[in-house]
Design a protein around this nucleic acid. Structure first.
Lengths: 205, 205
DNA sequence: AACTTAACTGAATGACCATTCAAATTTTTG
DNA sequence: CAAAAATTTGAATGGTCATTCAGTTAAGTT
């Protein structure tokens, strides 16, 4: 008896509308009524599903972090050749970004990390998951004899530092050729990091 | 005749108040009246000196980028020994951050880069300046025979990618010990990059 | 057709927002 | 003291904001 619930679909719809508006006008300008307009529903309906704007923010944050996770999903291929390992590293620098993702919205959430514990923890957890996934892939490569490295955990962290730093800078670059040139340079460095055993490198003089 | 102008001092005062409020409550919540309250002046006075909020935003952006530049100011020391070169690299990972700077506000501006050409260009210019400054320092090291590297420009860019990526991740970390551990790892990698000629794929000392 | 449950609307709330403007105040100079 | 130039204020503007609530509509069941 009673009406069928479409709660979850509606909520998803609202979150996507919120994302779309934030993408277009900036997260700080994405108001409830703009979201409602975009979704062609009444503002009250948004409040019906999300008690406060804050709640909607958290939902959008989760939505975005899920997408982020998808981008970096390691393809299931077995890392048994050198080529496959190199391809994996190169893929890290090739976010299918523009389709799946808006950097402006992403960094707006990231900025909140410094004031909001909830956001900080969810970001931290996501990044640690990504780092760990890469570490496991690297371990597999070690087992299969295509990689020789004493600390795959540190290697994974360092590769991601390079990836994150790369995209941070590339967000400032308009010229497509320059982007490609830089990406090539970053990739080369990342691949070289596989070879170079900086742990045993003596930095004393 | 007439009254002495304190225009520039007042403007600076307002910008600092804006920064303080943004730091505490987030850039998106730093309103004109909150800024005025903080500076103990009338909201209209803020509007007198900055015709629009956007104008105030641009001013704060410039203020913040100036601070950013200061943090990375290369000490004038001559790079004639290995120690000095290594010290320079290590300094890049040691922003006197917490004192001089609020990352939340910084990344809030950075997020705007994706929607606002003015912000994108000012950020780009600043970063390119920093990269070039480091390149010049590296060139000096090469001249003085303490560094052997075929492409100091690429090296500079890559080091900064690592620095930026490092701080991006460290923003998520609460534990001070973990921060130090990671910083040490990033530094080690950066220093190893000085040695490694990834262009020709062989390990040189 | 009556009941139940959920989706949905519309109007109203008060708070806060950026911005405008005319007027008041302060300081300097002649 | 008076004129000049700047700083500063206070009140008012209209718009948008998140949120509340009472009520309506739609879709299922018995």
């Amino acid at each position: 008896m009673g009406k069928k619930s479409i709660r979850e679909q509606r909520k998803a719809e609202i979150i996507k509308a919120f994302y779309a508006v934030a993408k277009k006008e900036g997260l700080e300008n994405a108001s409830i009524s703009k979201v409602a307009d975009y979704a062609k529903i009444n503002p009250s309906l948004v409040m019906h599903y999300f008690k406060t704007r804050e709640e909607l923010m958290v939902a959008l944050n989760d939505f975005i972090l899920e997408r982020y996770l998808k981008i970096y999903r390691v393809n299931g291929a077995v890392l048994d050749t050198r080529e496959k390992l190199i391809q994996l590293i190169e893929n890290l620098f090739s976010r299918k970004w523009n389709r799946l993702f808006d950097d402006g919205v992403f960094y707006s959430f990231y900025a909140q990390v410094y004031r909001n514990k909830t956001f900080r923890e969810s970001f931290k957890q996501l990044h640690d998951t990504l780092h760990l996934t890469l570490k496991k892939a690297l371990d597999e490569a070690v087992e299969n004899g295509v990689l020789d490295h004493p600390d795959t955990s540190a290697l994974s962290n360092n590769i991601f530092a390079l990836v994150d730093g790369a995209y941070y800078y590339l967000g400032l670059v308009d010229d497509k050729e320059e982007i490609e040139r830089r990406l090539a340079s970053y990739k080369r460095l990342a691949i070289s990091m596989l070879e170079f055993d900086y742990q045993s490198q003596d930095t004393t003089i």
